[in-house]
């Protein structure tokens, strides 16, 4: 046969494919988490998710819809430390602790839905533009350019205002506005990845265009999208809180932005807790996802990935 080269130092192993794949995932995760700030961010996220998960266990609603703040006219404006009300109550008697926990659930629902929709839609549009190219690319990208020229917050605000104050409408507005940047991100990545010779090799092998997209192009283009999605998990909540703060959500919703808004009036009178704790939650949520997203970005830079 042919010359067999001397054995290399790192390849004598007969592990199965899945172990190898898992090991790689493990290695990447470890690299991401080796950064202390990323680790802190992740821990905060876990804590927040725990709060959201435990909300039904730790608190009880006293109105039919659990996502509405409870009303207890008897204990309005109670300061933190009051028995049964760890963080105090609002001017309508709602338990701030309740608001914090159920607000976490609301935020989680919100961010998962919005990020889910925006990533999917953005990826589809960007993939069509980048992979197929030509006229389709031009048309889609002009549309994207136009949409991106509108400031996201204003755009979402306009849509939500037109549709009427409701949290569902906020979700809708955010989904409509925030998908656009994903299209551009993935289109750019796809165009870059397409130039690699392994894509040519797949074409020469005779594989179908869809398979080439699925196996070669998409997996190698997706990392910036993942990073952006993580960052958006934080940013979406922030934006939603802003919109509900201005009054575009229904009143009395167990949502941090609404709570901050409701509690605003009381601050000058010294009743700081109704706004501060929810505000703090918004801050922590956004901070945590930003830390993790940045940590991912450093490690998952496609140019240095896997080297």
């Amino acid at each position: 046969m042919v010359d067999v080269p001397a054995p290399d130092s790192f390849t004598v192993s007969v592990e199965g494919p899945w172990i190898v794949r898992l090991r790689r995932l493990f290695d990447v995760s470890r690299k991401v988490l080796s950064n202390p700030t990323t680790l802190v961010g992740l821990m905060i996220i876990i804590a927040l998710l725990a709060l959201a998960a435990l909300a039904p266990l730790l608190t009880t609603p006293n109105v039919p819809d659990a996502y509405q703040m409870p009303r207890d006219w008897g204990v309005r404006d109670a300061p933190p430390g009051t028995p049964d009300h760890l963080l105090g109550t609002t001017s309508t008697g709602g338990d701030v602790f309740y608001g914090v926990l159920w607000g976490a659930r609301t935020s989680l629902r919100l961010s998962v839905i919005v990020v889910g929709i925006t990533v999917t839609v953005g990826t589809i549009v960007g993939s069509l533009a980048g992979f197929i190219g030509g006229k389709l690319d031009e048309i889609l990208m002009r549309a994207v350019d136009v949409l991106l020229a509108i400031p996201e917050l204003i755009f979402a605000l306009a849509i939500a205002a037109v549709l009427g104050p409701s949290f569902g409408n906020i979700i809708f507005a955010l989904a409509v506005v925030f998908w656009v940047k994903y299209a551009r991100i993935i289109r750019g990545q796809i165009i870059h990845v397409k130039q690699n010779e392994y894509v040519d090799a797949a074409r020469v092998t005779g594989d179908s265009k869809f398979n080439i997209y699925r196996k070669d192009v998409l997996p190698n283009s997706i990392t910036p999208v993942m990073v952006q999605a993580t960052l958006d998990m934080g940013g979406i909540v922030l934006t939603a809180a802003t919109l509900s703060f201005i009054g575009l959500a229904e009143a009395g919703l167990a949502e941090w932005g609404v709570l901050v808004s409701d509690g605003q009036a009381g601050i000058s009178a010294g009743k700081w807790w109704a706004s501060t704790f929810p505000g703090l939650m918004i801050f922590l949520w956004a901070l945590a996802f930003n830390l993790v997203g940045d940590g991912m970005r450093d490690v998952l830079d496609p140019r240095t990935e896997g080297r």
Binding site: E197, D200, E305
Partner: peptide
């Protein structure tokens, strides 16, 4: 075309970029 594709293959210059980094 089927026959052609099976019988005409390519080896590229750049050993780095001619293999999909995500595939075994």
């Amino acid at each position: 075309r089927h026959v052609y594709r099976r019988n005409c293959q390519v080896v590229f210059q750049d050993a780095f970029s001619s293999l999909n980094p995500r595939q075994l």
